[in-house]
Design a protein around this nucleic acid. Sequence first.
DNA 1: CCCGGATCCTGCTGGC
DNA 2: TGCCAGCAGGATCCGG
Length: 301
Amino acid sequence: MPELPEVETIRAGLARHVLDATVVGLDIRRDSALRRQDGGRTEFTDRLLGCHFTAAVRRGKFLWLTLSGADEVAAALVIHLGMSGQLRLGSPPSSHSRIRFDLSFPDGRTEVLDFVDQRTFGYVAVRDLVPTADGLPGGLGSDRPQVPDLAAHIARDLLDPHLDRTDLVHRIRARQTGIKRALLDQELVSGIGNIYADEALWRAGLHYARAAHRLRSAEVNRLLDHASEVMNESLAAGGTTFDELYVNVDGDAGYFARALAVYGRTGANCPRCDTPIVREAFMNRSSFRCPRCQRPPRTRR
DNA sequence: CCCGGATCCTGCTGGC
DNA sequence: TGCCAGCAGGATCCGG
């Protein structure tokens, strides 16, 4: 399940391997992978063929390759991995490959880039770039103040040097909802998914249902520090690989799964106090927590 | 406007 | 052994 560290690992891989590559061929194997493409496969093909990639950029879980070519409008190939999307370079054919990109490099070398996606929540699309609301760079990997229209509503993430932390804390505390729901809201702060939300809450000793507006600024700041710390640690380990639905562009797994304290560890002992970790349904998904380190809030009546 | 629940999808797993 | 319910969860859509 790619969250910020996994998407960033993939972005860095693309930045290393496909910049300056020209798209010389496309094999669209499943139309639904283009469901966010205006004009469908025709427009996708027309806008992409002959372009080359100029930068690999990321904001939260959104990834894009900026394009240079015949198109007069600034555009990018937007990639959202959903929950099982992968980008693979020079990998053997996969039955879950949705789009294949034939790339040609200035030195004459060729390579195939595959968008692989088992559970099909991911998508790719060529979209226009629009100015950022704050005039600051659109994401990690580019100095241009532009983002794809599709990602214009997505907030900056915790690894973004232009994130306004004071404003973020203020906006989280203005929410009439539980703290985990706020952490997962990509319009508040992007990049955090179920895994890193649970890990950050465990590190901070907070229950997922604690009311966001009842937390002190210092508590929210501490929680965000933990979230950014756990994601940086994961990034250093190449991300979290559970069930092989996440690998980097070279097909390698990440090693952070072994460092998780609570996520997916039902019945295992809390690393801090040895109490068995519990799993609970919350927001239509699983939440893992230590029942001792993360006590439920008293319900108001 | 804000909040929260339902929904899309596929493949694997566990229970009977 | 075979079948089927349940589970995994990104973002988005819609109703209250």
